[in-house]
Structures are given as structure tokens and as C-alpha cells.
Simulated scan of single mutants.
Amino acid sequence: MNYHFDFSFLSGSLSALLGGLRVTIELAIASNLMGLVLGFLLCLLVMSRWAIVRWPAQLFIEFFRCTPALLQIVWFFYCIPMMLDVFIDPISMGVLALGLNLTAFNAEAYRAGVQAVPKEHLDASVALGLRPWQRTVYVVLPQALRNATPVLVTNGIGSLQQSALVAIVAVADLMYVGKSLATEAYRPLETYSIVALIYFALSLLIGKSARVIERRQDAAGH
């Protein structure tokens, strides 16, 4: 292999990479917040006793789980403005597409977490006279969140990585900036290696932080 690595061209492009990284982090944080909140609400709809509520929610989940995330992003960017005559800025549209995708996956994680809540705890909350919304907020949600944390973290990391797909619709995230730099400098190996290392570092940091929080929750519960 006679290829010689040369990272000197990145010295003048650091600000562009940091700008792309900022957009990526914004997309990841906003879509994860959306997925965490709406995922639990969707979980409650899926577990409803009424079929008229349960079936549309299940259809939503199956649609987002059974179609490629790339196709969903392209559809949101191009089809929604054409169909509804609504134009949203690219970052908000990216958050919407990624967030709804994550909502579907998180709903299933929450459902498994809710089903793992001991029936005795629910019976005790009924005996204490808690209203349905109080049982949901104070009894079901904390335990479901704890049970689902490993899967939610995995989904969150996956959402961070999937945010790179918005580059195909010209959102100036880390991947898009990296692609532009690689084309301009004719240094794709160096550029994409740096971009990959940044994604790896972010994912590793999230995973390690989540494990620390999980261990503290387990210690507090014993």
C-alpha cells in the first residue's frame, strides 16, 4: 500500500466539521427527546383495551419498523411539502422523521418494560386509591423506564448514527460536511475516517454514560 495519509487539509476545515457536528448533536438530542416522550404515549395506545385506539397505533409502529429509515427521511422531505403545502426548515424536518422512527422502536421497548412491571405493584397502587393517570405516572412509568433503559439507549445510539442519512437531503450535518470536504480535498480516506471516529466517540460516550446511570439506579433500588 503506497497511500500516504495527509490530514493537513483539515486544519482549515475544523470550523466546518464542528458546525456539522453541532447539527448532528441537535438532531440526535431533539429526536431522542421526541422518541422518549412519544414512545411511551404510543406504548399506552398500543396496550389500550379498545381496538379502535390500538390498531392505528400498531399500524404506525409497523410502518416505521418495516420501512427503511432512508426512505422515511426522503418521503418526509419531499412528499409532505407536496401533499400538504407545508414547508419546514430542513433540521426540523430531519428531527420529525428521525423522531417518529425512534418513537416506533421505543414504543416496543416501553411495552416490554411495562409488561415486566409486577402485577402486585399495580394491585397495591389500586388498593392505595391511586387514579389511573397516577398509577401510570408514579408506578408504571418509572419501572418501565428502568426495565427498558438498555433498549432505549441502544435505540438512541442507533438514532444518532441514522442521523447521518439526512445528508442525502442536503442537511449540513457531520456526514454532509465530511462528504463535501472529501470531494473538495480529494482525501476521502482521511475525511471519512475522521467522521467515523467522531461518530464512534459520541456513541461510546452515550453508551458509557447510560451504563453509569443504570448502575446507580440499580444501587439505589437495592
Rank of each mutant, 00 (worst) to 15 (best):
L41R: 05
G178L: 04
I29F: 14
K119V: 07
R135C: 13
F63V: 13
T24N: 13
A170M: 04
L152Q: 01
I213R: 08
I213W: 08
Q162W: 00
G94N: 06
G129I: 00
T191P: 03
A116C: 08
R65L: 03
G221Q: 03
L59M: 06
Y176T: 03
L41H: 05
A167Y: 06
L130R: 08
R131P: 01
W55C: 00
L205V: 08
G129W: 00
A182R: 05
E62W: 13
Y78W: 12
L130C: 11
H4Q: 14
Y78H: 09
L42P: 03
L96P: 01
Y176P: 00
L130I: 02
L98E: 03
V139M: 02
Y199S: 07
W50M: 12
V37H: 02
L102D: 03
L96R: 00
L128S: 09
A107K: 04
A116Q: 08
T154E: 05
I52V: 15
L181Y: 06
S8R: 14
E184R: 08
T136V: 12
L189K: 06
A104H: 11
R216P: 00
L128R: 03
A127H: 09
S209A: 14
I194C: 13
F40E: 05
I88Y: 01
Q72W: 07
L102M: 06
A28F: 15
G113A: 03
Q134R: 00
L100M: 13
T24R: 09
T67Y: 02
L45N: 03
K208R: 10
L18W: 15
L189S: 06
G178R: 02
V23I: 15
I80N: 09
L42A: 13
V126G: 00
A127Q: 07
R215S: 11
G12Y: 08
A185E: 15
C66H: 10
I157Q: 05
H121L: 15
L36Y: 11
L197Q: 12
A144L: 10
V212T: 10
L41D: 11
M34T: 15
F7H: 05
R211M: 12
I198R: 09
N155F: 02
S180W: 06
S209I: 04
S180L: 11
A170P: 00
Q143K: 07
V114S: 04
Y3T: 12
D173S: 11
L44C: 11
R215L: 10
P81M: 12
L27M: 11
L165C: 01
F76G: 01
L128W: 09
V37I: 15
V37A: 07
S92Y: 08
D218S: 14
R22Y: 03
I91W: 00
A127C: 14
T191I: 14
A201E: 05
F9A: 01
L45G: 05
F77G: 04
E62T: 04
W50Q: 13
A127D: 09
L160H: 00
S11L: 15
S193E: 01
M175A: 08
R111A: 14
R54Y: 10
T24V: 14
V212D: 04
Q58E: 12
P56E: 04
E190M: 05
L33T: 04
